[in-house]
Computed example of a mutant assay.
Amino acid sequence: MKTNPNWYYEEKTPGVDYLNPKIAQKYDAEHQKFRNFKEESEHIVQVMEITPEDTVMDFGCGTGGVALNLAKYCDKVICVDISREMLDVLENKAKKLNINNIETYSAGFLTYNHNWQDKVNKIVSMVALHHLPDFWKSVALLKMAEILKPGEKLYLFDIIFTFNIQDHQKSIEKMIKDMQDVAGDSMAHETEIHIKDEFSTYDWIMEGLLEKTGFLIDSKKIKSSNFVEYICSKL
């Protein structure tokens, strides 16, 4: 891991503890209640125009639900996650599936140490950047811009709020209820923890962070009042 100054934010997993091996082992089963990793990956390949020659980085890759599917479409996937336990699950799945074109690094957004001479074609970050407070999101995005080749793409998908602040209580309660209806009590509880302990932000803040760190927002799609997809080009 990169050695940062003493005043740097100490990355951790606020909210649900994905450093816990038992929770890491259950991640796929819980998230597949409301996600389809294969469809998500195919969508990313299409909108990001990923080619067999591309090197793709998945920041906050978790157990590799997306990364291992992307590996079928590109030259290499660099899988980065702060949780060694999640990467262990990813590596076991890759071995069973005979997927060999991945590299794994146990590091966070702020501690990952990239070979700056070997920049990447695409970066994907799904439901992970919210682990950082807003200022540190900007530092992470600046690093992503430095890692990307000029003109190449960032795919960012996260829990990002689009509701009016006056409606926050009603909107958050609906978010929790919707998750309960789709994925049950355990994921509804995780959603409560997310709201209380993690750092999801507003879309207008996220867009300012992207633009100030060297990205042009090519497209924005609001998947719900709480999930937003950005496709960005490095300027």
Rank of each mutant, 00 (worst) to 15 (best):
K221P: 00
E10C: 04
I159S: 09
H189V: 04
T213I: 06
L216F: 12
A140K: 01
A183H: 02
E49F: 01
K170D: 13
E42R: 06
Y27E: 07
G108E: 04
G65K: 00
V89E: 14
K76Y: 10
A107D: 08
G108V: 05
F59A: 13
I44K: 02
Y73M: 03
V45A: 11
H189S: 11
C232N: 11
F37L: 03
V80T: 06
K22S: 12
L90G: 05
K170F: 10
D134W: 02
M48C: 15
Y9A: 03
E103N: 09
L235I: 14
K76H: 14
K2V: 06
D81H: 09
L216C: 07
I205Y: 10
M1L: 08
V228F: 10
N115F: 02
T104I: 11
L154W: 01
I50Y: 04
M1G: 15
T13V: 10
W204E: 08
L110N: 03
N101K: 02
F161V: 02
T111F: 00
Y27R: 07
H131V: 00
W116C: 07
L90T: 09
H43T: 15
L209S: 06
I44Y: 07
S171L: 06
K170V: 14
I165W: 10
E103P: 01
M187N: 12
F34K: 02
H43V: 05
P14Y: 04
I195S: 02
K223G: 02
D75S: 14
C74R: 03
E173A: 11
V182S: 11
M206K: 00
A128R: 02
E40F: 05
Q46P: 00
I102R: 02
S225W: 03
E211P: 01
S171K: 13
I102C: 12
N100H: 13
T201A: 08
F37D: 09
E11T: 03
M86C: 14
T111W: 00
G151D: 08
Y230D: 03
E11C: 05
I231S: 01
W116I: 13
H31W: 08
H114G: 00
M206V: 11
F199N: 13
W7I: 10
K220S: 06
H189C: 03
N113H: 13
Y112H: 12
I78V: 14
D197C: 09
K212T: 15
R84T: 10
Q25P: 00
Y202S: 13
T111D: 06
V139D: 05
R35K: 15
H31I: 04
G60M: 01
N69F: 06
H189F: 07
Q169T: 12
V182R: 12
M175T: 04
E30R: 15
A94M: 08
E85S: 08
K220N: 04
D178V: 05
L132F: 07
N164C: 01
E103K: 15
E49Q: 15
P5F: 05
M1R: 11
K72F: 11
H189Y: 13
K220E: 08
I176S: 11
I23S: 03
D54K: 00
S233R: 15
K2W: 02
Y73I: 05
S106G: 06
D17G: 01
V120N: 10
Q166T: 12
W136D: 09
D203Q: 15
S186T: 14
T213Y: 08
R84Y: 13
I82S: 07
M179W: 04
S41D: 09
K76F: 06
L132M: 05
A188F: 06
